[in-house]
Design a protein around this nucleic acid. Structure first.
Lengths: 167, 167
DNA sequence: ACTTAATTTGCAACATTATAACACTTCTAT
DNA sequence: ATAGAAGTGTTATAATGTTGCAAATTAAGT
């Protein structure tokens, strides 16, 4: 994917099965490189998170697992999520208390999340220019930035279109 | 205050009573302009939030009020906070589930929060350039940004100094 | 001033999100 | 094989946030 291609989440039509498959394959690869264990539970949790481009809460994941017969308790899911977040496979969106699959796993990065307040879809940008600009501004005041999380709320293309059509 | 002055929170020595007094005065003024009621409870909650430059959780505020004899229930505090946030007098830091006094009340703005992971101090920047840059990048993908919240974690000047000295 | 309507606060109950502590199992490396 | 480490299961509980309704206060019109 070119560096500034439009995030897949913002494309109305896309092969989402492909999103999931790619994410799982990339995750397996990342874990292999890091010598981390990509267990069935972790894999399944990641897969659930990737079911859509809308962030999913820990208890939402629990519900899905419960419906499958497995009846895990909260710590089980939180531990899997902690692992996935630590390995950079999943991001937590603090303002939503929810998790979303990372579209650039493997490399360390500070993302910008575009949250549609209409449909809930979240797309991830990775504009290093923004991060370095902030880092520079902060450094000017003596503050040493180590990580940045940016959450933008607005309207995604699909919802903007729908809104225009409806009026 | 000049547009790019170093946030007071990052200054080791400053007259914090002045911070509080200024914030309360500014809040009264903002409420007057908006025709909103700056009730004793709201005023007291704002004052408590301003006790330091470290964000304070709703239940922390509850504890302070409880120690004063008043024994409010959670909704009371959350409503006061909702009001203060809605009027732009207080910001919520989602990753900390906590609230901090706004240093630029009155004008609508999207801030960048510099969170020290050592002492917990949070300073607020307001770099409109960063926001417009993000808005532009998002717009390029068809996403219409309406508000942005940026949380940067790192080391504040005081803690960086302390760390250097200690080693 | 008096009444009405709207806003604010009090209060009880509850919903949601997250963690602590410890037991048990599974995997890995020797 | 076996010891140690890592992962998972389970119980209980902590921390954060909300709903719904009643009482009190305030604002505005008469």
């Amino acid at each position: 994917m070119p560096r500034d291609a439009t995030p897949t989440a913002l494309k109305v039509h896309h092969d989402h099965d492909r999103c999931i498959a790619d994410a799982l394959a990339a995750a397996a690869e990342v874990c292999r490189e890091l010598g981390a264990r990509f267990t069935p539970l972790r894999r399944r949790v990641l897969e659930i998170v990737w079911q859509s481009h809308k962030p999913l809460g820990a208890y939402g994941i629990l519900d899905v697992l419960a419906a499958e017969g497995r009846r895990p308790m909260p710590p089980t899911v939180y531990r899997a999520l902690d692992f996935l977040v630590a390995k950079g496979l999943v991001h937590r969106i603090p303002s939503l208390n929810a998790f979303i699959g990372c579209t650039r796993p493997g490399r360390r990065h500070d993302g910008q999340y575009l949250i549609c307040h209409n449909c809930g879809t979240v797309a991830e940008l990775t504009d290093e220019g923004l991060n370095t600009a902030l880092g520079k501004a902060a450094r000017g005041h003596g503050f040493a930035v180590e990580s940045v999380l940016t959450e933008a709320v607005g309207l995604c293309p699909a919802c903007a279109e729908r809104r225009k059509t409806a009026s």
